[in-house]
């Protein structure tokens, strides 16, 4: 597989300091050994609930912060240790689209200057930068005249397109999309998603698509990684993951997403997980999902489940994956796992 982007055992922790002398009183385990691979021109969707580390992973890939250990590689070149000229050329290859269309554009810069700035930094399109800025706007479905306008004159969806144009300005290979449509209304969201799809086909882009909305991820991704508390619990080709999830968490997550179809929605078998995600300050031992899992056994508390390859390209980190469980012991009363919550 010609892999463009690779993460190997990435660890990122944040110290928590408190008190008069700012002593370290704890550690947020944001990423605890995350490995993944995104083939060129494909989209890897990363899903999970808040605090699962998906955004930290995205920001590590674009080097918005350093990682504590492990490695992130782009065509074998290490991202985490690049500096100086290497870092600059890396910045050209990996770009990011941000979540908040209202915060991701500088209110003081015209759309044109924002796009031209990206070109200036890397010395691109010298002599024809304003033309290039207009081309970029057209690429994302906006009118070229918009170059002279300011961000506040645009709607959320339009701003998100501008953010995409800015990322495209440096002709990157990889774009990390961090919740690009979660702030948009449904009627506008589809346009942005379709645009992203079109651009990928046109330019052969590789996407890392971070989102909490599984339906959106399903629409755009070739492969999906599910994260829980700083670890990947399952990764599988999209169709496979949604049809036959292996990890209990994936199964619960899928069953919790409301489906806009009253008959389907009311007749679904729903797994209601008890409690909330435990704090990343003090994650459970062994399998981090065990405190909310209806299949948890003693082994889950002591032994960290590793990602194992299962059928059809699925890899799951579970001691009791669905396909190996004889009679599915579906949770009739998951309240008993309440202990771990809070």
């Amino acid at each position: 597989m010609s892999s463009t982007l690779e993460a190997i055992d990435v660890v990122k922790e944040y110290p928590v300091r408190s008190g008069l002398f700012r002593r370290r009183t704890g550690t947020v385990h944001a990423l605890s050994g995350v490995s993944l691979e995104v083939p060129k021109g494909k989209t890897l969707g990363i899903v999970g609930e808040s605090g699962c580390g998906k955004s930290t992973l995205g920001r590590s890939i674009v080097r918005l912060h350093d990682i504590d250990s492990g490695s992130i590689r782009l065509d074998g070149e290490s991202v985490e240790s690049a500096s100086g000229q290497d870092l600059r050329s890396l910045r050209r290859r990996v770009q990011m689209v941000f979540q908040d269309p209202y915060a991701s554009l500088n209110p003081r810069l015209t759309i044109g200057s924002a796009l031209i700035e990206a070109l200036e930094i890397h010395g691109l399109a010298a002599g024809r930068r304003s033309e290039r800025a207009q081309e970029l706007l057209e690429m994302v479905g906006l009118r070229p005249e918009f170059v002279q306008r300011y961000p506040h004159e645009f709607s959320g969806g339009q701003r998100q397109r501008i953010g995409i144009a800015r990322a495209l300005a440096v002709e990157p290979e990889v774009i990390v999309l961090d919740e690009p449509v979660s702030a948009l209304d449904v009627s506008v969201q589809a346009g942005v998603l379709n645009q992203l799809k079109e651009l990928q086909d046109l330019l052969g882009l590789t996407y890392v698509f971070i989102a909490h909305d599984l339906s959106v991820v399903r629409y755009l991704s070739d492969e999906v990684a599910v994260m829980y508390l700083g670890r990947i619990v399952e990764t599988a080709p999209t169709g496979r993951l949604f049809a036959a999830p292996e990890h209990p968490y994936t199964k619960a997550l899928l069953s919790a997403v409301p489906i806009p179809d009253p008959i389907v929605e009311r007749s679904r078998e729903r797994i209601t997980l008890s409690g909330d995600v435990p704090s990343p300050l003090n994650p459970p031992s062994g399998c981090r999902f065990r405190t909310r899992c209806w299949k948890a056994t003693e082994r889950c508390a002591t032994e960290i489940p590793l990602l194992r390859t299962m059928a059809d390209g699925t890899r799951a980190a579970c001691h009791h994956p669905e396909s190996e469980t004889q009679s599915p012991t579906d949770p009739t009363d998951s309240q008993r796992t309440e202990a771990g919550a809070q």
């Binding site: 969806g157 589809a190 998603l193 399903r218 629409y219 899928l254 806009p260």
Partner: peptide
């Protein structure tokens, strides 16, 4: 609006979502 929503249970991937032009 229903056509613009990606669905968990619908046919995925190749079928495009309907994108409503413009904004409110």
């Amino acid at each position: 609006l229903l056509a613009a929503m990606p669905r968990l249970d619908g046919n995925s991937g190749d079928s495009r979502l309907y994108s409503i032009p413009g904004a409110p």
